[in-house]
Lab assay of single mutants.
Amino acid sequence: GQVHVGDTTYHFPNPEEARKFAEKAAKENNLQVTQHGNTFKVE
């Protein structure tokens, strides 16, 4: 799974890890998570 936060892309071998990371980043920054397959975008 990939997580895009601003201009930075994080790669995770496990989509579940990617999702947890995205949700945590979104919560900390008052942002939203959008999911496209195994790619998550925090914005």
Rank of each mutant, 00 (worst) to 15 (best):
E28L: 12
G37D: 07
H36K: 09
E16H: 08
Q2H: 14
N30A: 07
E43W: 11
T9Y: 11
G6S: 05
R19T: 01
F21M: 02
Q2R: 13
P15R: 13
V3I: 02
N14L: 05
R19S: 05
G1R: 03
R19D: 02
N29I: 06
V5T: 03
A26T: 02
V3M: 01
H36L: 12
K27G: 07
E43V: 11
H36R: 09
E28G: 07
A22N: 00
Q2W: 15
E43P: 03
K20F: 07
A18P: 00
T9A: 06
E23F: 11
Q2D: 07
R19N: 03
G1Y: 15
E23R: 03
L31P: 01
H11A: 06
F12T: 01
T39Q: 11
T9D: 05
F12G: 02
Q35Y: 05
H11L: 11
K41Y: 15
K27Q: 11
F21P: 01
N38P: 07
V33R: 00
K20T: 08
N29W: 12
Y10G: 02
A18C: 07
T39I: 15
T39W: 08
V33W: 10
K27R: 13
E43M: 10
Y10I: 08
A26G: 06
K24G: 06
H36E: 12
A18K: 01
E23T: 06
V5Q: 04
E43S: 12
K20H: 09
L31A: 12
D7N: 14
E16S: 08
G1P: 10
P15T: 14
E16T: 09
V42N: 02
Q2E: 12
H36D: 13
E16A: 09
A22T: 00
Q32K: 14
E17F: 05
F40D: 04
H36W: 10
T8K: 15
V42L: 11
E23C: 14
Q2C: 15
Q2I: 15
N30H: 12
N38W: 02
Q32W: 09
E43D: 10
K41D: 13
Q2Y: 15
N14G: 08
F40C: 04
K41R: 13
F40R: 04
E28H: 10
K24R: 12
D7P: 07
E43F: 11
Q2S: 13
V5W: 15
A18L: 00
T39R: 08
N38D: 07
E43K: 05
N30T: 04
G1H: 12
P13S: 13
H11Y: 15
G37T: 02
K24W: 13
F21A: 03
N30S: 09
G6T: 03
V3D: 00
H36C: 15
Q2N: 08
A22I: 02
T34W: 07
A18F: 01
N29F: 14
H4A: 06
N14H: 06
T9V: 15
G37L: 05
K41P: 05
F40W: 10
A22G: 02
F12A: 01
K24E: 11
K20W: 07
K27E: 10
H36S: 10
P15K: 13
K27Y: 10
K20N: 09
N29E: 08
V42P: 04
D7T: 12
A25N: 06
P13N: 12
K27M: 11
N38T: 07
T8I: 14
Q35R: 13
G6D: 06
T8H: 14
A26K: 01
Q35A: 07
T9C: 15
V5E: 01
A26P: 00
N29K: 12
T39V: 14
K24N: 11
